[in-house]
């Protein structure tokens, strides 16, 4: 799950070195947090969140294949 999001994010941004994904477990569900450079936020979220939502759809399949559930949050750049 983490690899999927890392791969997509790193492929879409201008600065792949700033891509970070953290995966934690909350009540049996995986929660993925994604950070990218401030300048790349637009690419990762997309118009009306379209890119982030497509990532969530693919993540759901990846999780389902592992018999799990997962959510994705795009985090504010630090």
């Amino acid at each position: 799950m983490k690899e999927l999001i890392e791969y997509i994010a790193a492929s879409l941004v201008d600065d792949p070195t700033q891509v970070r994904v953290r995966q934690e477990w909350v009540g049996g569900k995986a929660r993925l947090e994604l950070w990218v450079a401030k300048e790349d936020m637009g690419r990762i979220i997309g118009k009306s969140g379209r890119v982030a939502n497509a990532m969530r759809v693919l993540l759901r399949v990846a999780a389902a294949r592992e018999g799990k559930q997962a959510t994705l949050d795009v985090m504010e750049p630090r």
Binding site: L12, R50, V51, N53, A54, L58
Partner: peptide, 10 residues
């Protein structure tokens, strides 16, 4: 469609 969208972006 999500797979297609992400693939075409990359």
């Amino acid at each position: 469609n999500a797979l297609q969208y992400i693939t075409s972006l990359i």
